[in-house]
Design a protein around this nucleic acid. Structure first.
Lengths: 200, 200
DNA sequence: TATCCTTGACTGACTGGTCAATCAGGGAGG
DNA sequence: CCTCCCTGATTGACCAGTCAGTCAAGGATA
């Protein structure tokens, strides 16, 4: 804590955390860099000491979190569970992420994942990785007979992830209540709905 | 065509159609009003003769199309079909809309529906109407026993519409091929997947 | 211990460019 | 000559990114 390195890292983190709140509140396009600096309680210029551009802040936030999610999906896939249980684990991870930091998930979904023509274009490859891992799970479940083969794995991955993201969006924009009970129940509902359609 | 009213309407329409192409190509935030005027082959100022603000153009495009969609959903619901067939009709309408004018659907999804914190906030009520109509279909199917009651109608509506939008997004961002065969097949796949989960 | 040097974290006023929106006026139809 | 449709140069606000400089901490030297 007395070392300069540690202090530096802390300010960087402070700026990133402030950016999450500002992006969530005002949106990436509508907020100013000075809003982030103010929220972080830091001079305007310091933002540019740690980041080369406004976009780099959003980049960093997205990549940090998305890599954790890809790791979680890979771990679920590597386990010896049934396909249904793997998909449950993925839904659980994403929903728990939302519970833990709703602002961060809002920013990632609204500003990156669902903004694929402006900002998310840069990250399409990363986003695609998630789909591919999920469709791999479905494909293997079809091969061993636990899922029927009429529905393509790629389509199933789109439906599964799309369903999760839409439920999160419903909470984010207050179309649906997001109490602890609802979050927990949503995990089951998503897996029931999608796997119900995929299983024989 | 010789009457002033008709000529005026035509220019207005020309601007709206040009805006669809520009918004689809560059995105709402990144395009300039002059890009729209150029694309329409019209003077910059004329845009402000027909619209009070840049946002009003997007507003108009969204409301025009969304009202058509709400009418289509209402019509499907009013028919004497099964819930599964009603949902198929809705999926069909949306996918055919995409086939007929992919640019317009891209703009509506990317710039309005999925941008609910910036632009879509204004239209949340309109968007919610669609969900409510769909959840009504599900609720009545549950009441007559054709859908099971474990999954709430609100959740089912979110899952159903989210699934459709995600599939369209996959086409829009070229994550999946969008040939005529795929479009046709997607209608069935969506209904199979979601209704498969909702039916006993 | 006292003095000087170096480093880099930190500051915020400023600039350059972009773009939405305005407005003064031209021309055609009636 | 009045009313619209139409034009495009101009204006004024806004904001990302720059930069010249301050300050505090650490290390070296004597």
């Amino acid at each position: 804590m007395a070392t300069p390195e540690r202090a530096a890292v802390d300010k960087r983190r402070t700026i990133l955390d402030a950016a999450v709140r500002v992006f969530a509140r005002q949106g990436f396009h509508t907020c100013r860099v000075s809003d982030i600096a103010d929220e972080a309680g830091v001079a305007y210029g310091l933002v540019y000491h740690y980041f080369n551009a406004k976009e780099e802040i959003l980049d960093t936030l997205f990549l940090e979190r998305w890599d954790v999610m890809l790791a979680a999906i890979a771990e679920a896939d590597a386990s010896q569970r049934t396909a249904r249980d793997k998909l449950y684990a993925i839904a659980e991870f994403i929903i728990d992420s939302y519970r833990h930091d709703p602002n961060l998930m809002k920013v990632i979904i609204v500003e990156v994942t669902r903004a694929a023509n402006t900002f998310g274009r840069t990250h399409l490859a990363k986003i695609r990785e998630a789909y591919q891992q999920i469709s791999g799970i479905v494909a293997r479940a079809q091969a061993d007979g636990s899922f029927r083969k009429e529905i393509t794995p790629e389509f199933a991955a789109l439906a599964f992830y799309g369903c999760i993201e839409q439920v999160l969006s419903g909470w984010i924009f207050e179309l649906e209540p997001a109490g602890p009970g609802q979050l927990e129940r949503a995990k089951t509902l998503i897996v029931e709905t999608i796997c119900g359609g995929l299983e024989g």
